[in-house]
Amino acid sequence: LKKVVALYDYMPMNANDLQLRKGDEYFILEESNLPWWRARDKNGQEGYIPSNYVTEAE
């Protein structure tokens, strides 16, 4: 899975979204639905995130 790091905080707009915290790492599960990607956080929560809020992890 592709790993990304959040560049900004993101508060979910609806139940399908995943909250982002700046500096945290996330795994990308699906990239087909631009600009929204399906992601999983370190706690196993899954949801959609804005792809322009993250960058690929080193």
Results as ranks from 00 to 15, higher is better:
residue 7 L to P: 01
residue 41 D to N: 10
residue 13 M to D: 09
residue 22 K to M: 09
residue 2 K to C: 05
residue 55 T to R: 13
residue 12 P to K: 05
residue 19 Q to G: 12
residue 12 P to C: 04
residue 57 A to P: 12
residue 9 D to M: 03
residue 10 Y to S: 03
residue 1 L to P: 08
residue 58 E to W: 13
residue 2 K to F: 08
residue 4 V to L: 04
residue 26 Y to Q: 00
residue 32 S to H: 08
residue 24 D to M: 09
residue 12 P to E: 03
residue 51 S to N: 06
residue 23 G to P: 01
residue 39 A to L: 06
residue 39 A to T: 02
residue 21 R to Y: 14
residue 31 E to N: 09
residue 34 L to F: 14
residue 40 R to H: 04
residue 44 G to N: 06
residue 33 N to V: 10
residue 36 W to A: 06
residue 49 I to K: 00
residue 14 N to E: 08
residue 47 G to Q: 01
residue 26 Y to H: 00
residue 8 Y to F: 13
residue 55 T to D: 06
residue 42 K to C: 06
residue 6 A to S: 05
residue 22 K to C: 07
residue 50 P to E: 03
residue 42 K to D: 06
residue 24 D to Y: 09
residue 43 N to D: 13
residue 20 L to K: 00
residue 31 E to P: 07
residue 56 E to L: 14
residue 35 P to M: 15
residue 22 K to V: 08
residue 25 E to Q: 10
residue 18 L to E: 00
residue 52 N to S: 15
residue 24 D to W: 14
residue 4 V to D: 00
residue 20 L to V: 04
residue 10 Y to N: 02
residue 24 D to E: 15
residue 51 S to F: 14
residue 14 N to Y: 12
residue 25 E to A: 08
residue 18 L to T: 01
residue 3 K to I: 13
residue 43 N to K: 09
residue 49 I to P: 00
residue 12 P to T: 04
residue 9 D to A: 04
residue 39 A to P: 01
residue 2 K to P: 05
residue 51 S to W: 13
residue 37 W to K: 07
residue 55 T to V: 14
residue 35 P to T: 15
residue 46 E to H: 04
residue 34 L to E: 15
residue 5 V to Q: 06
residue 30 E to G: 07
residue 35 P to H: 15
residue 55 T to K: 13
residue 40 R to S: 06
residue 44 G to I: 01
residue 38 R to L: 15
residue 55 T to Q: 12
residue 48 Y to N: 09
residue 21 R to N: 11
residue 28 I to C: 03
residue 7 L to R: 05
residue 22 K to G: 04
residue 54 V to I: 07
residue 22 K to N: 04
residue 20 L to W: 01
residue 9 D to N: 10
residue 5 V to K: 08
residue 57 A to N: 09
residue 51 S to V: 10
residue 5 V to W: 11
residue 21 R to F: 13
residue 9 D to S: 06
residue 1 L to R: 06
residue 7 L to I: 12
residue 4 V to M: 07
residue 57 A to T: 12
residue 55 T to E: 11
residue 49 I to N: 00
residue 19 Q to P: 14
residue 52 N to V: 09
residue 38 R to I: 10
residue 38 R to V: 09
residue 44 G to R: 04
residue 45 Q to G: 08
residue 23 G to E: 03
residue 51 S to Q: 08
residue 51 S to P: 07
residue 7 L to D: 03
residue 17 D to P: 02
residue 58 E to C: 11
residue 41 D to I: 00
residue 5 V to R: 07
residue 1 L to Q: 07
residue 10 Y to K: 04
residue 58 E to L: 14
residue 54 V to P: 00
residue 9 D to W: 03
